[in-house]
Design a protein around this nucleic acid. Structure first.
Lengths: 212, 212
DNA sequence: CGTAACTGGATACATCATATCCGCTTCATG
DNA sequence: CATGAAGCGGATATGATGTATCCAGTTACG
């Protein structure tokens, strides 16, 4: 929670610590994985990651049995941070504002991370830290939606089950071809959020669309 | 246009007509392709199509040099039908209603056709009938949006450039895991269309979401 | 030093879609 | 019906791509 990037815990506890150079390489691999997966998605190869880290493939496979393992290490942390955002949102007074803010924040993070988006799309394997973090986020969202409803902020018929599909829609915008990272998704999120409100506020749309 | 499925034109003109059994097989292949691509997407193999048609692979490759060619034959027709829907929509008086109706119709068609959706997502190769039909649809949509705007039906800032992203979003809903075909997309299309209106009409949302 | 730990990356392996080839079958025509 | 052209089937060659291993050589560290 308070831990910063770059000072990861040195491998698992109970294991003999890695040789210093090996531990350094481990960090390099994780960092490279972050960058590569963010830019090229989960279909990137461990060979790609190794090359990006300036290491040999063998070194990577020594530390992580397969791609799944590396991705799990990387994205569990990522998802935990998002879960923390969701939890923070629950503290805010106005639930709808909190929900909207959370969505903007979490999706903004996803906007720059193709791997993360793919992970959310295809669902995490049960029993991993990924799945746990995912459930956490979901439950925070549910609470947020429930509270927004009791506060009368939601359009009739809107439920917590709407959040995931909305995220999927925004994800589709992010996956659109074109120069990245684009901020176009904010425009459509705004439209959708307006559509979720009990009384739609016609705040001007963000992004391109200046009419003549 | 007036032609029905099942009475396709017998191959290209200027070519010697196929032997009767060969022509029949051609039809079988196209029909199988329609079904297979619709159900499993464009990543389906020509081998798959052949098997589904009850024919050998060689027969398929004899008639269509590669998957691209078969897909083109199949989906050009599909897209032309959608283009016709768009053209018909332009005749309606109320442009917004026409636009909404067209989107519902076209997307409804896509809902049952994974291959078609993939094709729209990844863009058609320039110079093909696909690309031509696509441009046609786009231009009809642009006209529809323009007219809706002059009729004062559109929220400030909404433009013709919004249509494609919206289609992409709805596509994302359709691609969501779960039993198919689902009608969930209608719900989100409704939300988005409301968000496009000058004065949002709070018609009850379709689909699941009955609040307690 | 001596040795256990670690590294590099060529390469074996596996998977998978694509496309071809050619002996056999079927049609169509005189 | 005979016969040759047209068509068929599907085993298989080809090629691309990702995954994972192996081991000779290098490096850290007591």
């Amino acid at each position: 929670m308070g831990r910063q990037r770059g000072e990861e815990e040195p491998a698992a506890a109970g294991t003999r610590p890695l040789r210093r150079d090996a531990e350094l390489n481990r960090q390099r691999i994780i960092q490279a994985g972050r960058e590569v997966f963010a830019a090229r998605g989960l279909q990137a190869t461990l060979n790609d990651v190794a090359h990006h880290a300036g290491l040999g493939v063998g070194t990577v496979y020594r530390k992580f049995p397969d791609k799944q393992a590396l991705a799990e290490a990387i994205f569990t942390e990522e998802l935990d941070e998002i879960a923390a955002m969701a939890q923070k949102a629950r503290a805010e007074g106005d639930a709808f504002t909190a929900l909207a803010g959370f969505l903007e924040g979490a999706l903004g993070r996803a906007a720059h991370n193709r791997g993360l988006r793919e992970l959310m799309r295809h669902g995490a394997v049960e029993g991993t830290g990924l799945a746990r973090a995912r459930r956490e986020i979901t439950s925070h969202c549910e609470a947020l939606v429930a509270r927004a409803r009791t506060q009368g902020a939601l359009r009739d018929g809107v439920t917590e089950a709407d959040i995931a599909p909305i995220a999927a829609m925004i994800d589709a915008i992010m996956a659109l071809p074109g120069e990245h990272p684009s901020e176009l998704w904010r425009r459509y999120l705004a439209i959708i959020l307006d559509g979720l409100r009990a009384q739609p506020r016609q705040t001007p749309l963000p992004g391109p669309g200046s009419v003549g």
